[in-house]
Design a binder for these strands. Structure first.
Length: 281
DNA sequence: GGCATCCTGACC
DNA sequence: GGTCAGGATGCC
């Protein structure tokens, strides 16, 4: 799925396109996408509302309407697309699960092959996104905040960083990339990182996310921006998806493993597994 | 923690 | 035909 840099890219570009426009009508093609509302109730509630803002919390897209919020989570394969006009072919295309006709004549579309994504209407978006950790690019996420997170848990570092309640926005790609940058093995226990390692990890997470946003996200397969364009960060990945390819830093082949039931990529030389004897705990 | 589940499609 | 996939949740 889109992770923080992809969602941030979508939010910036959507915001420039649709803020100030108005929803004329909504059409739901996959009822589960808008549950617990029925498609009719969803369409009725969304119609004739102006779009005031588009923002992000973690990987959630928050669209502020008149006295109502629309929350979108793209999960694995979701896209938010803006089309200059809706035509029969687009409206009928197989993977469009929900679409909105806008007053300007344009269309906003929620496209999703795997149908894991969800579109919710609510009055309080922060209540609906639930218990999320700090924004990794926000002011509250400081080196001290990361050190606190690391010492407060005794978990493997990769699953810890993937936990949205701990830190909001990282996914499989950017966790692998951040750990590669920091030279930390994905199985390291979080509380065993020393001061220098924690500082490196902090800088690595922020630098990786910022660079990926500059490149407008990573397209491995499905990700597209609202104009249906691929992101440019893929060629900059050092570890993720590069099994057996040379590590950009030392040339050693990147190793693929499974950590927390997620495909995981690391350099066995740059990311040595210190403290492996703790794994049994 | 590990694993199944929600889905579809690509690749081997 | 089997395996894998950028996510999240819920169950042992």
């Amino acid at each position: 799925m889109p992770e923080l840099p992809e969602v941030e890219t979508i939010v910036r570009e959507l915001s420039a396109e649709i803020v100030g426009d108005r929803i004329e009508a909504a059409t739901v093609r996959w009822a589960k996408a808008v549950a617990p509302l029925t498609p009719d109730a969803f369409a009725l509630a969304a119609a004739q509302r102006r779009i005031h803002s588009v923002s992000r919390r973690g990987k959630h897209i928050l669209i502020e309407l008149d006295e109502l919020w629309m929350l979108i989570h793209l999960r694995m394969t979701g896209r938010m697309l803006v089309a200059p006009r809706i035509d029969d072919e687009l409206a009928a295309s197989k993977h469009v699960q929900v679409w909105w006709a806008l007053t300007s004549g344009r269309a906003l579309l929620f496209w999703d092959v795997r149908k894991f994504g969800r579109v919710l209407l609510c009055e309080d978006p922060l209540e609906v996104v639930g218990d999320l950790g700090p924004e990794p690019l926000g002011d509250q996420f400081t080196p001290a905040a990361l050190k606190h997170i690391l010492t407060a848990h005794h978990r493997q570092i990769k699953p810890l960083l993937l936990d949205q309640r701990v830190l909001a926005g990282l996914g499989n790609i950017y966790v692998d990339e951040s750990l590669w940058r920091a030279g930390i093995h994905p199985l390291r226990r979080s509380h065993t990182l020393n001061e220098a390692e924690a500082t490196r990890l902090y800088a690595s997470i922020r630098a990786e996310l910022r660079q990926a946003i500059d490149h407008r996200g990573t397209t491995l397969r499905d990700y597209r921006n609202p104009a249906n364009e691929a992101g440019g960060h893929g060629p900059h990945l050092a570890a993720y998806g590069r099994t057996d390819a040379p590590c950009p830093r030392c040339g050693t082949p990147i190793v693929r493993s499974v950590v927390g039931s997620r495909g995981t990529h690391h350099c066995p030389i740059c990311q040595p597994h210190k403290g492996a004897e703790d794994d049994a705990n």
